[in-house]
Design a protein around this nucleic acid. Structure first.
Lengths: 184, 184, 184, 184
DNA sequence: TCTTAAACGAGACGGTACGTCAAGTCTTCGC
DNA sequence: GCGAAGACTTGACGTACCGTCTCGTTTAAGA
């Protein structure tokens, strides 16, 4: 519907504002002004600021990430941390995260479009590593990262992250033992 | 500064609105109208909606919780989940959580006034249980709960929660073994 | 420039909208949508809504009126009233009348293309009736009609109109007497 | 409701804009900006631009006119013409007149608050002059003035106006004769 | 007991952003 | 390659809250 150049200008403006003005600058009016675009053009294509942010994030991922194949669980988590803390992505994510708490639909979108891909990457590696319960292992691996990001605590350093991965690995080996006899 | 009856009316109004209208109804104007109070009365006592919410949450805790002494780690986590999902507390927490993402000061307040008490309760029990690293154990226990709340995933059922606690307990026993030699 | 079918569709759409939606529905966008035509097609042929309305009025006159030869002054005034009060012409005229007050050019067009013909028809009859001052007589005859239409007062009934015409006729006879001696 | 100083600023701004920018500048946003006032302040007191214009006109009348007692019919009509042609009143009236054609409620307000007082002044003088039908005489006197204003024709000069008044006076004397026998 | 200063309700105020509508211009694509 | 469809910028609409600021009016304590 919208012309490609217009879309590009809008998403670039969103990224710019995220980096320069912080999350509170990410308003429909602000983006329109920054992009040199009418408000109606925004509303014609995106129903809300959040929709723009999703597109901006996806675009930015496509541009930046460009599918590096991560070798290890550690690498994926490390790059997840990078995503959560590097601007402008961090600002966009914060803004979306705020919206998650007022609108369940946005929560679903966030989960599906932004979080699941990350999660599945971890899951695949975890499964390849022979964990007994890849699903819970993935949660145990990722949850503390998100927990620290959400509460704005200091993130894992590389060595802490390494320990964290090791710990969960051992846990899962233990679990598999458990399942096979000791506790059932 | 403010009269006790006024404070009570305001906090009650905040709780009412949280339950009835969802997080988006929690505005200064809405609370003032609901409480039958002038806006300036609100601003005289609280600098922002968030400050009111903190007070409302603390008050509600005092009224409801009234310091049950939880015997086990499981019980504490179970009641944490209840807090995260029972109205009106859930709505207030969502609203605050949203603000966390736009204001670091609120994040600190949230962490200090609402989250740390919970965390320390867990920590004490965990330490009493003889975990080698109570701090990381606490994080491993709590993070998945918050993770699911944040992403609005289905929360742990009682049996899942029991498994989760067991898993972390074994992990920490293993870790302590590790530390003493096997893996280093 | 525009194809005859397009022109017809546009003018028909204008008449339709005038009848159905009242004067506020007569916008470029509305007419384009109603006619199933791009906006640029409108602007290519007509510079403004008003231009379309003029064309629609002229077309409608041609279709409806088809030049009945009115015998008497009374008949002409009666049919003038009918024009001012019968849809869809009434709505188009109201819309144009509104524009008269913001744009002098439209006032001139209105006067020249829509009002003068009416006026001259009256003038001819009045002159034929032997009035001393056909010009002022015409004004005295027409002004009250327009005055009532403009202020949305109840229009002349047939008998009131008959009295009105009689009164002006006598006035003019008196005037001619005056002119010939009594007051000069 | 609104504070007197605010009202004064708003009405002054409306008069200023009418004089400087023409009728198209008389928008809610424009007035708010010119008056240095929030839009909500306008909407709190007046439902529309037109309501502001009515107030501005009434205020301006009160300030300017200040109840000159007109001696003669001619004087009243002369001052009516002045009102219709002197800025900023002329611009405000044009703007209102435009609205009359899209909204009947405004027509009623216009008639009641702005036109009737004028009309009654004429009526009183006409009745004092011993006209047989003061109501129709008033209409005959005023209609041509409004007619020329509406169609933006040149207004009556003083001498034309004098003739016009004389003519209607004679007409009415004739009418009274009629009524008493000749034509009934 | 009376006064007096504060806290109060009410809500006007200047702002910012919302989401919508129409104006008039510019671009793309199908016939 | 012309013209219909419609995307574009602009600007006004009317609304919701923001945080500040008067207003009188309680209300509670000290004189």
């Amino acid at each position: 519907m919208a012309r490609p150049t217009t879309v590009a200008r809008v998403l670039a403006a969103a990224l710019d504002l995220a980096e320069r003005g912080g999350p509170s600058a990410l308003t429909m009016e602000g983006i329109a002004a920054e992009a040199g675009v009418g408000k109606q053009t925004l509303y014609r294509t995106w129903p809300s600021v959040h929709a723009i942010l999703f597109d901006a994030l996806v675009t930015e991922s496509a541009a930046a990430g460009a599918s590096e194949s991560h070798a290890t669980t550690f690498d994926v988590l490390q790059s997840t941390i990078a995503e959560l803390t590097t601007e402008p992505r961090a600002s966009l994510l914060r803004k979306l995260a705020a919206a998650i708490h007022s609108d369940e639909a946005i929560a679903r979108q966030f989960h599906k479009r932004l979080f699941l891909p990350q999660q599945e990457q971890v899951s695949r590696l975890v499964a390849a590593d022979g964990y007994a319960n890849p699903k819970t292992a993935t949660e145990l691996l990722l949850a503390p990262l998100l927990y620290r990001w959400f509460l704005r605590l200091p993130q894992f350093t590389d060595s802490e992250l390494r320990d964290h991965v090791e710990k969960v690995r051992h846990l899962e080996r233990l679990s598999s033992t458990n399942v096979s006899g000791q506790y059932i």
